[in-house]
């Protein structure tokens, strides 16, 4: 039984990371109707920024942390300008291909600069963790879960209770109407990319001490985040979070009880199962056919 709790704890921890990336995914999808295939690289780039600031330059951890998040804001803006914005009037196919190109470009440029050796990043907190009964609560996992809760709460508040949040929602629902009201649509999309890059980056920094920092971490995380959004119901914010957590748990149990090498495969099996049997996800489409 303790084993179950232990795995549940770890699953929710890793699932939180997927949920954060999935959240960024959904926000960009809702604002631009584009699936960003370079979403995982947001996490990877942030983790490497952490390596640069805190390991290579040996700057204090928290300063590195803030600098990395700031770097991600800039990266998100550049990403929008280089990969999405010039193609905004084209169909989804060129945009998908362009984001895939960006994903390959960024991960392999990093490989060229840093080589294939995974980098190690120290945990954010000094103390390792503690026991409740025989269940060991690792501090890094606790931190991930805690920050995810805070961030989700912040995002809820931001979208439901600020005017800027409402403007972002309006932009994602009807761009032409939004511009008629004087909402600066291009700026709203830019903000979406910046925010999405920052939460993706945060997820990357948080998970780095657990997974190692490697150029492959982006691709793996992105695919799982996508699977999470399908499980939850595509385009749904709450669905992305639930889907992410569910996937983390499934994967952790799968690895413990079925097979370790195929750990990354479970996500895809769940994904395919959902696509075949319940493509609208757990929550389905929230806004029905529009008049």
């Amino acid at each position: 039984m303790d084993m179950v709790f232990q795995l549940l704890f770890q699953g929710i921890g890793i699932g939180s990371v997927y949920a954060l990336v999935a959240l960024g995914f959904v926000l960009i999808f809702r604002a631009t109707n584009v699936v960003n295939f370079a979403q995982g690289e947001f996490s990877m780039v942030a983790a490497f920024l952490m390596v640069i600031f805190s390991v290579d330059l040996e700057w204090p951890y928290w300063i590195s942390f803030l600098l990395s998040l700031g770097g991600m804001a800039i990266y998100g803006a550049l990403f929008n300008l280089g990969v999405y914005f010039p193609l905004r009037h084209r169909t989804y196919l060129p945009v998908i291909i362009s984001t895939i190109g960006a994903s390959i470009l960024v991960s392999n440029s990093t490989l060229a600069l840093y080589g294939p050796q995974p980098q190690v990043l120290q945990p954010l907190l000094d103390f390792p963790g503690f026991n409740i009964g025989t269940v060991y609560l690792d501090a890094q996992y606790l931190l991930i879960i805690g920050l995810t809760v805070v961030l989700v709460a912040f995002q809820y508040w931001f979208f439901e209770h600020t005017l800027l949040g409402k403007k972002l929602q309006a932009t994602s629902q009807d761009k032409e109407m939004a511009s008629l009201l004087g909402i600066p649509v291009a700026t709203m999309i830019m903000l979406t990319f910046v925010y999405s890059a920052m939460i993706g980056g945060l997820a990357g920094i948080l998970v780095a001490p657990i997974l190692f920092v490697s150029i492959h971490m982006g691709g793996t995380i992105a695919l799982k985040a996508f699977a999470a959004t399908i499980i939850g119901g595509f385009g749904d914010v709450a669905g992305a979070i639930i889907g992410g957590l569910a996937l983390g748990v499934i994967e952790t149990f799968g690895a413990a009880y079925v097979s370790v090498p195929y750990k990354d495969g479970f996500a895809f099996l769940v994904l395919v199962a959902f696509l075949v049997f319940r493509p609208q996800g757990i929550f389905g489409e929230r806004v029905a056919e529009k008049a």
Binding site: P94, I97, I100, G101, I104, N108, A112
Partner: peptide, 19 residues
């Protein structure tokens, strides 16, 4: 000879071709 460089160029090429 530099791992990654060659694929990075592929990625860039994809974006440039699409654009």
């Amino acid at each position: 000879s530099i791992p990654g460089l060659y694929l990075a160029i592929y990625g860039l090429a994809v974006i440039l071709i699409v654009l």
